[in-house]
């Protein structure tokens, strides 16, 4: 059961990959809860299952077993179409490599998830402008990703994640492709968003940035081995 303050609850989540008769247990018996407004980071060495876990949280993939409740809704066994709809409305993604679409300009990139929601153009415009303003990129709406620096691209990606007012922001190594100055700026942005009430789940292996979170879940070999709470 989840109470009203729980954003994510995972119980006994398992993810097994099958390749050529070889079973790979990417995640085993994951129990996890993220509360609304919480800033959680997931840390662990390479191959520990961080990205797999984030993909399950983000409904990009389905667990092999276990239960997953997102914002009071069981989502472990939804079909592709329902998962798409929830992804679009409840989750905002920020990727390591920004994943902006090169053929779309800044405005169009931010607008993209809203168009999939079938939102009227006027409302989209308001939301896109607000999101871009929030990340300080509203002066670059006509630019294409290739015309922006890495830091700027990531800020646009954050704006895209914010535009739909998602229930949770998922960030997968958001600073991995940035220099330290830009990385700090993006982390400051996430921290500000959190202070404004956003729920954030971030994968990182950089301890400096993990400390920005309220809590860090440590993974090793597909299991939660430790949870640390930051005292800020």
């Amino acid at each position: 059961m989840t109470d009203a303050g729980t954003m994510i609850r995972m119980e006994n989540i398992t993810k097994v990959f099958y390749t050529d008769e070889v079973e790979t247990h990417a995640l085993s018996g994951i129990h996890m809860e993220i509360r609304k407004g919480e800033y959680v980071s997931i840390a662990g060495p390479s191959g520990s299952g961080k990205s797999t876990l984030l993909a399950l949280i983000g409904l990009l993939d389905s667990p092999s077993d276990g239960s997953y409740v997102l914002n009071s809704q069981p989502v472990a066994s939804l079909n592709i179409s329902e998962r798409s709809r929830i992804r679009n409305r409840e989750i905002g993604f920020i990727f390591q490599s920004f994943n902006l679409i090169g053929d779309l300009n800044v405005y169009e990139n931010v607008e993209l998830p809203l168009t999939y929601r079938g939102m009227p153009a006027a409302e989209r415009k308001t939301r896109v402008q607000q999101a871009l303003e929030r990340v300080g990129m509203n002066h670059r709406t006509k630019h294409y990703p290739s015309q922006l620096s890495g830091g700027q691209q990531q800020r646009v990606a954050v704006a895209r994640a914010l535009a739909g007012s998602p229930a949770i922001l998922l960030a997968d190594e958001p600073t991995g492709n940035l220099d330290s100055r830009n990385a700090e700026a993006v982390m400051d942005l996430l921290r500000d968003l959190h202070r404004e009430g956003a729920t954030i789940c971030m994968v990182t292996h950089d301890p400096r940035f993990a400390r920005h979170a309220d809590r860090t879940i440590h993974l090793f070999d597909g299991r939660v081995v430790e949870e640390t709470v930051e005292v800020n």
Binding site: S84, R85, N88, N99, L112, P113
Partner: peptide
């Protein structure tokens, strides 16, 4: 493929 993956990750339905 990657662009389409991004679109799907952002909630694009198969029909879109």
């Amino acid at each position: 493929t990657r662009e389409i993956g991004i679109r799907i990750a952002l909630g694009a339905q198969q029909e879109s």
